[in-house]
Structure formats: C-alpha cells, structure tokens
C-alpha cells in the first residue's frame, strides 16, 4: 500500500499551518525598522513592548480577566455538569439545548445581545461586563468537557462510598472530585485560552476603563505593521505552550 502520498499531504498542510507562526517568531527578533526586511538579530521589539506602559497594563488586565473567567466558568460549569449528570429535573433538555446554542452561536450574535443587555440594565462597560460575557461563552465548553468525563465514570464507586458510610460531601470530595479533576483542569485551560484569545465579544462589551490585550493589538495592527506585535505574539505562543505542557504533565502525573 502506498503510504508516501498521505504522508506528504499531511506534512504539506502542517507546513502551511506553521509558516505564518515561524515567520512571526523570526521577525520578532528582527532589527530592521520597516518590518518586511531582515536587518539582523535584535531584542529591540521586546524592549519596545515592555516600555509600552499601555500595552503592559493591557497584558495584566487580560491575564487577570482570563484567570477569573476561567475559574468562575469552571466552578459553574462543573456544578452544572454534575447536576445534569446526577439529577432528573424539569427543563433538562431545554438547559442542554441552551448550552448547545450558546456554543454554536456566531460570537458576534452573542456580543451584540450582551451589549444590549448591559446598556439596558445600566452596567458600566469594564471588568464586570467582560467577566460576565467571557464566563457565558466559556461555560458550555466546560460543561461538555466535564460531562464527557462523568459519562465514562463508574457509578459503582460513589455507591460504594455511600455504602461504606461516607456522607454526600465526603463522597463528592474524595471520590467524585478526584475523578473529574483532569476534566476540571482541561475545562479551566480551555476557558483561559478562549478568554485570552477573544476579540469579537470583547470589542463590544469592554469600555475605556479596562483595556485588554486583544483590543490593544487590534487597534495597533489595523494601521500598518507594528513589529512589537511580533514580539507579543511570540510571547503569547510561548505562554500557551507552557500552559499546554503543564496541563499534560499534571494529567500524566494524576494517572500514576
């Protein structure tokens, strides 16, 4: 059987996917002023990046937002998944359906609907509106991740714990939570990434009091080339890779 053809094809697509990223990383160390020519190695754009106080503030704002949005959505999402898994209640299908619709909706539809809500109730656009919006679009992803883990879970374990006299709280803490820990972690990381990467929803629900990174980048790259963005992109890439590897490491450790 010929295997070189599919292999060549896979390699080719991967090359195409990675070329822009490699270009970005290489150009972040470029000394040239124009942005398209190569002028030798330099760290000047990293320096420019960290001297840009508005940029640094936006970075911290984004990180804090992503941390809090991921944490809140993991908490609510995990509880929701547990409820969907364990309880029977009226409107369960509607609840499932709503979560699915949130996940499939074009971001822009969610964005304008939230903007309309925030303006109607008079919420000032800033950290709180961003947090509410980000938790909303992260929630279904956390629920799905945790549900997937729970559906493969051996139901006899919690039953055994109860038979051995464990209270519901003890059982949840010692049996259920460790069992869904990898899913909680995966859901948290997914939420963190979704939040950090979001442009569409944030464009609508953020205000001047709380500027976040994607919007800062957006306003920079709309006009011409800004080599600092190469440096920032590279840092974000390294950051994501570290997070991803950290999560893999925790997952592998938890299996032992």
């Amino acid at each position: 059987m010929k295997t070189w053809l599919p292999r060549t094809y896979l390699t080719l697509v991967y090359i195409l996917l990675y070329v822009p990223i490699v270009v970005l990383v290489v150009f972040s160390f470029n000394d040239a002023r124009t942005g398209y020519d190569w002028g030798g190695l330099s760290l000047r754009w990293y320096e420019a990046l960290f001297n840009n106080t508005a940029m640094v503030r936006a970075m911290w704002n984004s990180l804090w937002l992503a941390l809090s949005a991921a944490t809140v959505s993991t908490l609510i999402g995990a509880l929701t998944a547990l409820a969907l898994h364990r309880y029977r209640f009226r409107g369960k299908r509607v609840l499932n359906g709503m979560l699915f619709v949130v996940m499939m909706s074009p971001e822009i539809v969610l964005a304008i609907s939230l903007l309309a809500l925030f303006l109607l109730v008079g919420l000032q656009l800033g950290y709180v509106s961003l947090l509410l919006a980000h938790v909303t679009f992260c929630l279904p992803f956390v629920v799905i991740t945790v549900m997937a883990r729970l559906s493969g879970f051996d139901e006899s374990l919690p039953e055994a714990a109860r038979d051995l006299g464990a209270s519901d709280f003890i059982m949840t803490r010692t049996v259920l939570i460790p069992a869904i820990m990898p899913a909680l972690l995966a859901g948290w990381l997914l939420g963190f990434t979704l939040s950090l990467d979001d442009v569409v929803v944030s464009t609508f629900v953020s205000g001047p009091s709380y500027e976040i990174l994607p919007l800062r980048i957006y306003s920079m790259v709309r006009v011409g080339l800004k080599p600092e963005v190469n440096a920032l992109g590279t840092l974000l890439l390294v950051f994501s890779l570290v997070m991803l590897m950290l999560s893999q490491w925790i997952l592998i450790r938890s299996k032992r």
Binding site: P20, V199, I217, L225
Partner: peptide, 30 residues
Amino acid sequence: LLIFLLIVPFWTNSLVRTYALKLILATNGL
C-alpha cells in the same frame, strides 16, 4: 501527536496569526 500539533497554533491569539499573514501577503511581503 499530530492532533496536538493541529491544535497548538490555535492556542495562539487569532488576531496575531491574522497579522502574521499580513507579513507574508503584503506587496513587499515575504
């Protein structure tokens, strides 16, 4: 591993990746 490699770029900001395309496609681009 290949699926992991497929997802890695998508952990990077989509705005930054769109901007990287600009470096490649511009009139005096790569």
